[in-house]
Nucleic acid binder design. Structure first.
Lengths: 112, 112
DNA sequence: CAGTTATTTGGTACTTTTGCCAAATTGCCA
DNA sequence: TGGCAATTTGGCAAAAGTACCAAATAACTG
């Protein structure tokens, strides 16, 4: 059954993995309003340009962002507008715990 | 600035990381309707019980699931009901690409 | 209490991810 | 064409994640 589960959830897991690094979340939030170049983003975060390039490449591979080349600078921008509906959704979930307690949707008997 | 970004997006990134493994997504979907024990889940996936225990522990650390002990078996269940609103939301995003093309929300000039 | 069952923890090996440096590539401009 | 600027790629080392086995723990049962 291992194979079956893998194929079913692999793709989904990979998207989450793409979103599972602070720098990449920063990128997505930062280029939401305005495109930035690789070196601009690298400077903002304080990491090597090549490292930033690789983060951007990863996001590009999952079609979350895309780059537009002007002269010899690549400006990155969001490809999927609904990405932020999603992230808003994620935050709602993350903040859910207290709400959950109000709504009493925590399992009745939790061992500690 | 590195520090600032880390603190701001670290927590969010960690939640995504918790969701970035096929087995853990399987767990969440499987215990949605009905609680299962560690060994039951391990058998379904076809991995070692100790490995499954560690996946469950990770999800528990992020308060996504909780365990109820009956006799000497621990049954795991979802803690956050809105988790699936979120996952539905994630799937919508993942399936977004074709929609996006219809809606022409792909950047105008994408270099390949 | 001794044995059994279920889970967790510790240890180890393997793989993947991340980040830097250096080198290669691409495209502009004099 | 030669040099410059921006980005990408390759290589390596450190860190993190994953999976197994074996041992430890916890809780029931005779």
């Amino acid at each position: 059954m291992n194979r079956k589960i893998t194929s079913q959830y692999q793709a989904e897991a990979e998207i989450f993995k793409a979103l599972s690094h602070p720098t990449r979340l920063f990128i997505l939030h930062t280029i939401k309003e305005k495109s930035y170049s690789v070196s601009q983003l690298a400077k903002m975060v304080g990491i090597d340009i090549s490292t930033m390039s690789k983060h951007l490449d990863l996001l590009k591979r999952y079609k979350l962002i895309g780059g537009i080349k002007e002269r010899n600078t690549v400006y990155y921008q969001l490809t999927i507008p609904c990405l932020f509906d999603f992230i808003r959704c994620a935050r709602k979930m993350i903040d859910c715990s207290p709400e959950c307690q109000q709504l009493q949707c925590v399992p009745k008997k939790l061992n500690q």
